[in-house]
Design a binder for these strands. Structure first.
Lengths: 206, 206
DNA sequence: TTTACTTTTGACCACTTGGTTAAACTATAT
DNA sequence: ATATAGTTTAACCAAGTGGTCAAAAGTAAA
């Protein structure tokens, strides 16, 4: 009885969890195997027993993060709501999601430019299909519901306004709120309403 | 004749230049003193002769980057153009600026969350004053030129749509253009017109 | 209990890292 | 020339790194 990968042996899952925290916080280069081992409450050699090397462990973590993130995005884009409602829902849900793990986007971007080839391969293996959403926007333009606009720019605008203010919190918080974390938190909360209205206001045909 | 700091002794400037490239590309943790020395064409010990330690060298680089970036931002916000024109100019200039050093924002964000205390101090020492721009927006609202909107959200929206698409290029390029770098480059070029119109379209009173 | 196996550990290693030091080089002033 | 000061180098070091290994500890079937 040791054919299949069976019950992700707890220890293995502990390691992955600890590794995720450390890697995301410090990046591949800043992360130490010892710290991961400590955080998982095990011996350092065990890390190499389950995952052969630091690189392998990192990749496992990276894959896990991506494969949780990507379906999350796709799901919403494919729902059946009217466009404006979809924009509202997406913004709200997406801002919340990123706020739960605010370090992940910068982590991904930093690692992506540290080692473009390897990471890109991982990325490619799991597909995102924005085409359906693009088509939906085109249809609304034809219907005359919204102003003519390149759907790509609209999507990028939407993503930008959701993601950037969260990842840039350490800067923004200082620039506009003098290190008042709660004020910035409230600010992000407001954005769940402000952003969709800002967008809709721009594209709605009057 | 060795009282003043006089002519930034060439070597020192070479080191700073090399260090900037390496630090920005690999981050503090990923950067190697040896690589910086090689890139500067000098012995590794010279790094420690001019800058005492890796930390000191890093801080020098970080300060240099910030002190070039910040006036660049302030300048435009304080010019005398009408609001819409200012938004157009800002977008165009800012997108170009960031495209010249696309790695810097992620570098700053990554380092900022690696060591919030130390970096924040550096940040604080050089002030940015968004208040003037905020007041200008408020005035336009009172005048009735633009729709009532929280100036902070407007500013953050503007920054987001400028910065994010550039720093996220490695992801976006894959997601929407299948690794076609030139297509994405053209896309960013378009944004210099699309973004300001998108914003103005949203806030202009009709 | 014995056997066979997986899991876990402590001790260890080769190598890289940032950093030091003493000596060599350079140029200027006397 | 030669003393003086700043600059540059090669060789070196201690600490930390990812990684290994053989043995111990656990586990379950025979």
């Amino acid at each position: 009885m040791s054919e299949m990968a069976e019950k992700n042996s707890n220890t293995e899952q502990n390691i992955l969890e600890a590794a995720k925290v450390v890697f995301v916080a410090k990046g591949m280069d800043g992360a130490r195997m010892q710290e991961i081992a400590d955080k998982a409450g095990i011996n350092k050699a065990l890390l190499h027993y389950y995952f052969r090397s630091k690189d392998k462990l990192f990749e496992a973590v990276f894959v896990e993060i991506l494969s949780k993130l990507i379906p999350d995005i796709s799901e919403l884009l494919l729902s059946e709501l009217p466009l404006f409602e979809k924009i509202r829902k997406f913004t709200q849900h997406y801002i919340d999601t990123i706020r739960e793990n605010p370090l992940i986007p910068v982590f991904i971007l930093h690692e992506l430019n540290r080692e473009p080839e390897g990471i890109a391969r991982t990325f490619k293996s799991m597909g995102i299909q924005p085409q359906i959403f693009i088509d939906e926007i085109k249809r609304e333009i034809e219907k005359g519901t919204i102003v003519p606009i390149d759907p790509l720019h609209l999507i990028v605008n939407l993503l930008s306004m959701c993601i950037f203010p969260i990842v840039a919190q350490p800067i923004m918080q200082h620039l506009i709120f003098e290190e008042n974390g709660e004020a910035y938190s409230a600010f992000l909360e407001q954005r769940k309403k402000e952003v969709p209205e800002f967008i809709i206001n721009s594209i709605r045909k009057k």
